[in-house]
């Protein structure tokens, strides 16, 4: 037993290996006296850190410990964030749908008002291949309404143009719906082009035009 007791300091320091370590660990299982002495030596050793001035660790260490010890709470926070984003997305989608509905209703009301006028004339707006993609309604005194079959593709807008013979086209405005009210007076042709948001100084992708007379 005395022989084994002499091994206890090395064991407490973690310096015991091999057959000596195995022998001591077996003895520790059966000897309360050895275990008690080992505890006392370990207790003395583990007071050595007290000889050092304490140093406060940076706050990020505790934050990382929390992340690692409470992943479920972190997951719940993450899930809550996803739900909030989803709710905002759904809300945004709902708002978007409502705005689309409002735009459609306004367009229908405008078209209905024009069609209710017996003086209104109309003609098809065709592309260079002769295919129609919309209609222009007009009145003799100058006002007109462009009605296109489809809204512009995402990221693009329609731009309306008026043009005199042998002159550059003049921008009459951009629109992202299917209906555009303007005035053809003073122009020989009315046209429509596809443009980037905000429009362009000159038509970059002309779709087609109609003569005004």
């Amino acid at each position: 037993m005395k022989d084994l007791r002499e091994l206890l300091p090395d064991y407490a320091l973690g310096l015991l290996e091999g057959e000596e370590k195995t022998r001591l660990e077996q003895a520790l299982q059966s000897s309360a006296e050895l275990r008690q002495e080992l505890l006392e030596l370990q207790a003395a050793l583990m007071r050595l850190p007290e000889s050092l001035p304490p140093v406060t660790p940076p706050p990020r260490v505790w934050a990382r410990i929390q992340q690692r010890t409470h992943p479920r709470r972190n997951f719940l926070r993450w899930a809550a964030a996803v739900l909030v984003v989803a709710a905002l997305g759904l809300g945004g989608w709902g708002v978007g749908l409502y705005r689309q509905y409002q735009t459609l209703a306004q367009e229908q009301a405008t078209v209905a008002r024009w069609l209710a006028d017996p003086e209104v004339k109309w003609q098809l707006i065709k592309n260079s291949e002769g295919q129609s993609f919309g209609t222009m309604l007009w009145r003799e005194e100058g006002p007109c309404l462009m009605v296109l079959r489809e809204p512009p593709p995402p990221g693009r807008v329609y731009q309306a143009w008026g043009r005199k013979n042998d002159a550059d086209p003049v921008s009459l405005g951009v629109f992202s719906g299917r209906v555009f009210e303007t005035d053809y007076e003073g122009f020989d042709f009315m046209g429509v082009s596809l443009e980037p948001p905000g429009g362009s100084p000159q038509p970059t992708q002309p779709l087609g035009r109609v003569p005004t007379s």
């Binding site: 850190p49 007290e50 050092l52 001035p53 304490p54 140093v55 406060t56 660790p57 260490v61 505790w62 410990i65 929390q66 010890t69 409470h70």
Partner: peptide, 19 residues
């Protein structure tokens, strides 16, 4: 009890960090 871990960290992290 996670507050127990926080309290133990408050008490002993400076000494352990120094070690």
């Amino acid at each position: 009890d996670e507050r127990a871990l926080e309290e133990l960290y408050r008490r002993y992290s400076p000494s352990l960090y120094a070690l």
